[in-house]
Nucleic acid binder design. Structure first.
Lengths: 300, 300
DNA sequence: ACATACCGTTCGGTAATACCGAACAGGTCG
DNA sequence: CGACCTGTTCGGTATTACCGAACGGTATGT
C-alpha cells in the first residue's frame, strides 16, 4: 500500500466533536490562553491534516494567516522540539518524530494500552475484523489501540480521536452505561449530528436503542457513522465500577452475514469482560441504571 | 502488568542524543524562536517524562521555573488542543489524547509504517524476540514501529526517540552504509558517549566494527547500549538507493546462545531486504563505499 | 476544633517580546 | 533575462505574555 493509495481509502469519522473549552475566541481557545502557543498548536494540526508530502513555510503562513516571519519562528521552535521536521533540501514541513515519541509515551501511561494488545489480537483472529480499544474521555470514546484483521486495511481507523458517541458502537456501548439524564446532557453537547442515512438523530430513538444495547450486552453501529461500515462494541469497567472505555470491532457491511451478528457481539462482549477483569472491574454492569453521579472520565 | 510495575522494567536508551538546533539558549532552542512556545513544549516534555499519575499545576510551575499563573495559561492552552489533559476532579495533568492522534498520523504519513507491520510480526515469531523498525532521521535511527515477541515485555523499547548511532544495532547498520567521512562527522557530533562497559567509544574501533557489519550483512549490539540487552540490526534502502532505516530485533543476552547469532542475523537481514524490496530499493548495498554525498535523511 | 499548608484561580500593571512588513538572497519557471 | 517562487534577515511598535499578590477550597497535621 503506497502513500498515494492511502489517500483514497475510506476515512472513518473525519471530523471529531468539538472539545468543550468554553467560548472559543479567534484563535480557537478559551480564556487564559497564550496566543503564540495556540498558533503553534494550530500549526501542528495543519501539518497533521496535510498530505504526507508536507507543506512549505509559505503554505503554513497562508493556512495560519500569519506573516512568514512569524510562521518561521513558530515552525523553528516546534522543529527544535521534534514536533515538526523540515526536509532540509526539499523544504517541506512534516510531522516530526517527537510526536511519535509522545504518542507512544501517552499510550504507555494509559494502563489499558499494553495489556489489551494480546486480547485485541485474539479478537481480531476470532472475528476476522479490525478490533480496537477505546478509553472514555469525558464520555467520548477515544481509540488508543488497534489491531487490524486479516483482510484488514480497506479503511483507515485513526487513533487518539474523539468519536461521535451517538454514531459509533463504542460510543453507544458507553452511553448505555449512563443514566438517562447524563445521556441527554451529552446529546445536548454534541447535537446528534447526522453522519449517514442511518444515523440516529433524535434523543428518544437513541434512548430506545441504548435499552437494546443493555439487553444484548453489546452495541451495534449499522452504517450509522460511515456508509458501508459496520461495528460492534461493548463497554469495559474499571475497578471502581465506572465505565473505563469500550472494545469494538469494525468491518465492511457486505462481508457480514446477519446470522453472525449475535455470535460476533458475544465475542466482543467476552473480550470486553476480560479487559474489565484485568482492571479489577465488574464483568458487566447491572442492567438497572443507578445514578451514581460518576461519569468514569477518570480512566481506570 | 500494572502501571506501578511498568515503572520498574528496564528502560533502554533513557536519554537521546541532542538535536542539533544551533547554540541552545536558556530555553533550549536556537535563534528565531518563540519563548512561550518553547516553554509550552518543555511543559509537554515534563509531563511525558513524569510518572503516569500525572503532575499538579504547582509541580509543573516548579519544574518549568515559571509562576503558577503563567504555567496555568500554558497548560490551559495545551489542554484546549488535547496535548494535555487535566483530571478535573483530581487535578493532575497527564498527556492528552491529542498526542496519540498526532503520533498515529505521523506514523501513517511515513510510508514505512503500515506496510512493515506484518513483516515485523513474522520476524518476531521467527526469532521470538521484539522486532522494531527504524527510520533514518539525519543519520540517527528513530524507531517508529514495534512488535513485541512472545516472552516480550521485560524491557521497554520507546518509539519516536533517537537512538545512539554508535551503540545500537540499527545505528551501526545505518552507519555501515555511509562513507568513512560521514561516519567521522556523526561521531564528532555525538561524541561516542559511553553507555555500558561494552560501548565502543573510539572512532577507529567503530570503523573496524562497521567493516564487520558490511561483511556479515547485519550489525550486532552486544550489551553496548544497555547491560544484558542484545540486538541485531540490518539496514533498509529506499528507491533512490539511499539508506532509509533499519530493522532490528532485541532480546535478553542470557536467552541467546552464541550459535544462533548468525541464523538470527540472517533472518533480520532477510526481513530488511523484503522491506527494501517493497520500497523499490536495492536488497543490499554493494560493499564498496561510494561517496554519493546523499545521507538518506529523506525517508524513502 | 483550629491552624497550616497546599491546591487552583483571578486580576492588573509593566516590561519584555512576539508580531509584522519590508528588503534580501537563492532557486526555478517561463 | 525577468517574473515569481522559495526561505531568510532585520528593526520598530504595540501587543501580550509574564509575574506577584491576593482569594477561596480542600486536605493536612497539630
Amino acid at each position: 500500500m503506497t502513500s498515494a493509495q492511502r489517500g483514497e481509502v475510506a476515512r472513518i469519522s473525519e471530523q471529531e466533536p468539538l472539545r468543550d473549552t468554553g467560548p472559543a475566541d479567534a484563535d480557537g481557545a478559551g480564556r487564559y490562553t497564550v496566543r503564540s502557543v495556540a498558533r503553534a498548536m494550530r500549526l501542528v494540526q495543519i501539518v497533521a491534516d496535510a498530505p504526507a508530502e508536507g507543506l512549505t513555510l509559505s503554505d503554513l503562513a497562508r493556512s495560519l494567516g500569519t506573516s512568514k516571519s512569524t510562521t518561521l519562528a513558530l515552525a523553528r521552535t516546534l522543529t527544535a522540539f521534534g514536533m515538526l521536521r523540515d526536509g532540509k533540501p526539499g523544504p517541506r514541513y512534516t510531522l516530526g518524530t517527537g510526536v511519535i515519541r509522545l504518542g507512544d509515551i501517552a499510550r504507555g501511561q494509559l494502563p489499558l494500552g499494553d495489556l489489551s494488545r494480546p486480547l485485541l489480537t485474539e479478537l481480531s483472529e476470532e472475528t476476522k475484523m479490525t478490533s480496537r480499544l477505546a478509553i472514555c474521555d469525558d464520555g467520548f470514546p477515544v481509540f488508543i489501540e488497534r489491531v487490524d484483521g486479516p483482510g484488514s486495511v480497506r479503511f483507515h481507523t485513526p487513533l487518539g480521536q474523539r468519536e461521535m458517541p451517538h454514531a459509533s458502537a463504542a460510543g453507544k456501548a458507553i452511553l448505555a452505561t449512563m443514566p438517562e439524564r447524563q445521556v441527554r446532557d451529552m446529546c445536548a453537547q454534541t447535537g446528534l449530528q447526522r453522519r449517514t442515512g442511518h444515523t440516529i438523530t433524535d434523543v428518544d430513538s437513541l434512548l430506545a436503542n441504548l435499552e437494546l444495547v443493555r439487553s444484548n450486552g453489546f452495541a451495534i453501529d449499522d452504517e450509522e457513522d460511515a456508509d458501508g461500515i459496520f461495528c460492534l462494541g461493548a463497554a469495559i469497567f474499571g475497578h471502581d465500577g465506572a465505565v473505563a472505555g469500550a472494545v469494538s470491532v469494525t468491518g465492511i457491511k457486505g462481508d457480514l452475514p446477519a446470522w453472525r451478528i449475535n455470535e460476533l457481539g458475544q465475542a466482543v462482549r467476552r473480550a470486553a469482560d476480560r479487559v474489565s477483569g484485568i482492571l479489577g472491574g465488574p464483568r458487566q454492569r447491572d442492567t438497572e441504571q443507578k445514578d451514581t453521579g460518576r461519569t468514569g472520565s477518570e480512566l481506570a
